[in-house]
C-alpha cells in the first residue's frame, strides 16, 4: 500500500527541460519511477532522454500518457501558474519542489484550489518517496529531489518540513533496519498544500504503515495541531523531532516559514505539545531513528 503514490504511479514533470528538473527526472527514471511525460510550453513533440515525450500542456500530457501525478520544477515567477494548470488538468496529486514562491501567490493558489480534488504537496519541499523492493530500494516511486538509494521499503511513515533533515532521519531508520512505507516532505513555506496533520491521517489509515516519524521545525502551529489530533485519534506509535531550539526569535532560518514571531512557534512549545500527545520526542537530531525504535518496544 503506502500512501499517495506507489510503484505503479505515472508521473509527469513540469519543467523537465530545465537543468534542475531534468537532472531529477533522470534520477527518478534511474530509480525505476514511471516518469511518463514532461511538460515545457513550446517544446511539445520533443523527447527527454530520447524516451519521455514532452508536451506543451499538462492536460495533453495527462490525457495521452495517463499521468495522475505532477512534479513541478519551474522557477518561482511561473510556479503558481504551473500548480493551477495541474489542478485544472484534474491530477490527483501535485508536488511542487520550487523554492521561493511569493506567499501571496500561494495564498491565492490555495484559495483557488478550494473544492478541487487535487492534493498539493509543497511548495519548497523535497517531494516524496515510496521505496521500491529492489536493491537500494530500486523500483519505488520517487517524486522530487530526495536521494532514492538511502531508503528501504518497510513500515515506517516519515513526514517532515525539510529536505536534508528528512534524509538524515531516513538514513538512521534504514541503518537500524527500519524500512519506510512512504516519506513525505511537506515543505518549509508558511503556506503549503499539505500539513503534518493531513499526512498523519493518511498514515493512520494505511495498513502498511505501523509507526510514524514526524519532524517539524520552528514557526506556525502545524505540529501542535497534528499532535493534538494524534493524541485522540492515532493508533500507531509516533516519534518526533523539532528543529530550531537554538534559533533566535524574529529571524527566518533559511525556510520562509521557519520563524518565531511574537513568541509563537517555538521549538519548546512544539515539543511540549508532542510530549503531551504521547509522542516520543528525540532530544537530538542524531536520535530520530533510535527514538522511534524505542517507541516500537
Amino acid at each position: 500500500m503506502a500512501i499517495l503514490v506507489d510503484e505503479n504511479t505515472k508521473v509527469l514533470i513540469q519543467g523537465i527541460t530545465g537543468s534542475f528538473g531534468g537532472r531529477h527526472a533522470k534520477l527518478s527514471l534511474d530509480y525505476g519511477t514511471k516518469v511518463v511525460a514532461g511538460v515545457t510550453p513550446g517544446k511539445g513533440g520533443q523527447k527527454f532522454e530520447d524516451t519521455v515525450p514532452i508536451f506543451d500542456t499538462v492536460s495533453q500530457a495527462a490525457n495521452e500518457m495517463g499521468a495522475t501525478v505532477s512534479a513541478i520544477f519551474v522557477p518561482p515567477p511561473f510556479a503558481a501558474d504551473a500548480i493551477l494548470e495541474a489542478v485544472d488538468a484534474g491530477l490527483d496529486l501535485v508536488v511542487c519542489i520550487t523554492e521561493g514562491i511569493p506567499v501571496m501567490d500561494m495564498m491565492k493558489v490555495r484559495a483557488a484550489m478550494e473544492g478541487s480534488k487535487t492534493r498539493l504537496i509543497g511548495p519548497n519541499c523535497p517531494g516524496l518517496v515510496t521505496p521500491g523492493r529492489g536493491e537500494n530500494s530500486y523500483g519505488g516511486c520517487r517524486i522530487g529531489i530526495a536521494p532514492g538509494y538511502i531508503h528501504k521499503r518497510g513500515n515506517v511513515g516519515v513526514v517532515s518540513r525539510s529536505g536534508t533533515l528528512t534524509y538524515e532521519a531516513v538514513w538512521q531508520l534504514s541503518a537500524l533496519g527500519l524500512g519506510q512505507s512512504t516519506c513525505v516532505g511537506i515543505g518549509g513555506d508558511p503556506i503549503n498544500g499539505t500539513s503534518h496533520l493531513d499526512v498523519l491521517k493518511m498514515f493512520n489509515d494505511d495498513p502498511e504503515t505501523e509507526a510514524i516519524i514526524m519532524i517539524g521545525e520552528i514557526g506556525g502551529s502545524a505540529e501542535e495541531e497534528a499532535a493534538a489530533w494524534a493524541a485522540e485519534n492515532c493508533k500507531k506509535p509516533i516519534a518526533g523531532f523539532i528543529a530550531g531550539a537554538t534559533a533566535p526569535p524574529g529571524r527566518r532560518m533559511g525556510h520562509a516559514g521557519a520563524i518565531i514571531s511574537g513568541g509563537q512557534g517555538t521549538a519548546e512549545a512544539k515539543k511540549a505539545a508532542m510530549r503531551a500527545a504521547g509522542i516520543a520526542v528525540a532530544e537530538t537530531p542524531a536520535e530520530m531513528g533510535s527514538t522511534l525504535k524505542a517507541a516500537l518496544g
Binding site: 529531489i145 517532515s160 518540513r161 525539510s162 529536505g163 536534508t164 533533515l165 528528512t166 538524515e168 518549509g188 519532524i215 521545525e217 520552528i218 523531532f241 528543529a243 530550531g244 531550539a245 537554538t246 534559533a247 529571524r251 532560518m253 533559511g254 525556510h255 521557519a258 521549538a267 532530544e283 537530538t284 537530531p285 542524531a286
Partner: peptide, 30 residues
Amino acid sequence: LVNGAGLAMSTMDIIKHYGGEPANFLDVGG
C-alpha cells in the same frame, strides 16, 4: 556549515545539546 535549512537548525541544536554555543546558522544549499 551545513547543507539544508532543517539540518542546519538541527546542527545548531545538537551543538547546544553537548554544551557548546553555535556562532551561526549557515545553510549552503542543496
